[in-house]
């Protein structure tokens, strides 16, 4: 998968889970502080990443601060591809 395609696919996933298209534009806001993700949604995201990209990120292996913005999430996935 091309870099751009990957990013676009992750963004689509996030927009679906956060239920807000703002993730396409606001890539550095803290998604938890903005009320777009909570603990349950974060787990949903990890499961969706595994199903879509076969990237396994165990909830116990990342701290919230490592995955709290759109850009950090994209980086975490890329690092594991």
């Amino acid at each position: 998968m091309e870099n751009n395609e990957l990013e676009a696919a992750i963004l689509d996933l996030l927009a679906d889970i956060a239920a807000d298209d703002v993730v396409y534009d606001e890539r550095d806001i803290d998604l938890f502080e903005a009320g777009l993700l909570d603990s349950m949604a974060a787990i949903e995201l990890l499961i969706a990443l595994e199903c879509t990209f076969s990237v396994i990120i165990a909830p116990t292996e990342v701290e919230r601060e490592e995955m709290n913005t759109v850009n950090k999430i994209i980086a975490q996935v890329k690092a594991r591809m």
């Binding site: 603990s39 349950m40 787990i43 990890l46 499961i47 165990a58 909830p59 116990t60």
Partner: peptide, 9 residues
């Protein structure tokens, strides 16, 4: 429980 099950451990 669903949240915990997301982790294989």
């Amino acid at each position: 429980a669903d949240m915990c099950l997301a982790d294989m451990s």
